[in-house]
């Protein structure tokens, strides 16, 4: 079992392949890995409760930690009370923590 940090900088409104990246997170969980999905830049847009957020909530129910960059949220006026179920705001420092601790870190 390995630790993975998947960084999603794209959003499903612009990019079809975001769903594939979420699916990759899901696949890594199925393989028994510990997976964090970190949303940054426009990647945080589906973190606001909307028709696009259920796939993220679903990932949290399958065992992924889903975090959203607090600066990207604030930059887009997304307050914590508007976040979809299961998604937590986080400082970007968490990415450097994962890098320092040897997680497999993948940017999309």
């Amino acid at each position: 079992m390995a630790k993975y940090l998947l960084i999603e900088s794209r959003d499903p409104f612009d990019s079809n392949d975001v769903a594939n990246f979420y699916e990759m997170a899901s696949g890594l969980i199925r393989e028994g890995n510990e997976v964090t999905l970190f949303l940054v830049q426009n990647g945080v847009l589906p973190a606001r409760r909307s028709g696009a957020s259920p796939p993220l909530t679903s990932l949290t129910r399958r065992g992924a930690e889903v975090l959203a960059d607090d600066f990207s949220l604030r930059e887009r006026g997304i307050t914590e009370d508007r976040l979809a179920e299961g998604i937590q705001p986080s400082a970007l420092d968490i990415v450097v923590d994962h890098l320092a601790n040897g997680s497999k870190v993948i940017w999309h």
Binding site: Y4, M24, G27, R30, E31, K104, H108
Partner: peptide, 17 residues
């Protein structure tokens, strides 16, 4: 296949996307 990417990743120390 897409469903086997997780297994493939296990064979590598780092994944550069």
């Amino acid at each position: 296949s897409r469903s086997n990417i997780g297994k493939l990743c296990a064979d590598y120390d780092q994944i550069w996307h």
